[in-house]
């Protein structure tokens, strides 16, 4: 079976709304991006230097990052040579395959590390305005729907209205929020929240933190302290540290992943705002260089707009039109 067919089949078997939403979110993206790849395939029937240059531009325009793009292109060139591919149409599946492979080695790795019994603590970290608080709201909804007992910790005591924002989400979803007043010590909030979670027998505690730019040493130290307090109370917690990345972000996301990774041992990425036209291609580079997997994607501002990450869907979303075209061409 061809790679397209496999991909397509896999996706059609996946439940409907998930895929639809994902595709929906990415169609806006596609118009420009895939349009370009389309043109590329149309304009260049042959796989030559010019083809690769053009492809390089397309990947760069998706924020994949220069370094990773270069490596990827080199690999593709090798592949084209060894597989003896000269037609542009034939190189498409190789591209998709490579990207999907790079992003996800197994489906297991997008799963959250949930405790069978007892409390699971998830800490959310990231720079300002990326969508930490919103993602917590969405995730709380998801877990609540699964019948879990969820609690939120209002660890952003700094930004104006941050506690209230989380409270609105708590009300919306129907879960409690543990908070202190604005300006209080976030580590103390976490301590409180863990005690509450324990005494209420909560299944899941989702911890919000204030947005911070990764070059602020003091704020990063504060974050380390927050994490330490959690670990002190529950030795194997936090069970997940999710770095929230905005898909609109360019190369700086790599520096974010590095620094937050060092400070808090990030276990996964939530890539938000994929409903826009940005593609967050930097996650490819992050995966490649730091081996941090994307676990969830944000596709809007609503409660239901959070999806488990699926690499082939992601890649399919980017290349959907091309894939169809290529398949048609192959069927001819």
């Amino acid at each position: 079976m061809s790679f397209f067919k496999k991909l397509k089949e896999k996706i059609t078997h996946q439940t409907d709304s998930v895929t639809e939403k994902f595709k929906d979110g990415l169609t806006k993206t596609r118009d420009s991006f895939v349009g370009k790849v389309n043109d590329l395939v149309k304009n260049y029937r042959k796989v030559d230097e010019e083809f690769f240059e053009e492809l390089e531009d397309i990947l760069i325009s998706a924020d994949v990052g220069v370094h990773t793009v270069m490596e990827l292109i080199d690999e593709l060139k090798d592949e084209a040579r060894t597989r003896n591919i000269s037609d542009a149409v034939d190189i498409q599946p190789v591209i998709s395959e490579k990207l999907a492979e790079l992003l996800q080695k197994s489906e297991e790795e997008t799963k959250l590390n949930m405790q069978e019994d007892g409390l699971t603590v998830i800490l959310f970290v990231g720079v300002n305005g990326v969508g930490k608080t919103t993602t917590i709201g969405k995730m709380a909804h998801k877990f609540k729907e699964d019948g879990k007992n969820v609690l939120l910790a209002a660890g952003d005591t700094f930004r104006a209205g941050a506690i209230e924002q989380l409270e609105v989400w708590g009300e919306r979803v129907g879960v409690d929020v543990i908070k202190q007043h604005a300006g209080s010590d976030p580590a103390a909030v976490m301590f409180d929240a863990i005690q509450s979670a324990k005494s209420r027998n909560a299944d899941i505690l989702l911890c919000d933190t204030a947005g911070r730019l990764q070059n602020k040493v003091n704020l990063m130290k504060e974050l380390e302290k927050v994490k330490k307090v959690i670990t002190r109370e529950i030795p194997d917690a936090p069970h997940e540290v999710l770095l929230v990345l905005d898909a609109t972000t360019g190369q700086n996301a790599m520096s974010q992943a590095k620094t937050f990774g060092q400070a808090t041992d990030v276990s996964g990425i939530v890539l938000t705002k994929l409903d826009g036209t940005a593609k967050g291609g930097i996650v490819l580079a992050i995966r490649h260089e730091l081996d941090i997997p994307v676990k969830y994607v944000g596709l809007g501002e609503g409660m239901d707009d959070l999806q488990e990450f699926q690499a082939d869907q992601y890649v399919h979303g980017l290349f959907a039109d091309v894939l169809e075209k290529a398949e048609e061409a192959a069927g001819e």
Binding site: S32, I60, S61, A62, D63, V127, G129, D246, T248, T249, G250, Q251, N252, A253, G276, T277, A278, K279, I282
Partner: peptide, 12 residues
């Protein structure tokens, strides 16, 4: 505009 914005800044 967020200074960290990538390639999409032009579209926005």
């Amino acid at each position: 505009v967020d200074a960290m914005t990538g390639q999409d800044a032009v579209n926005v």
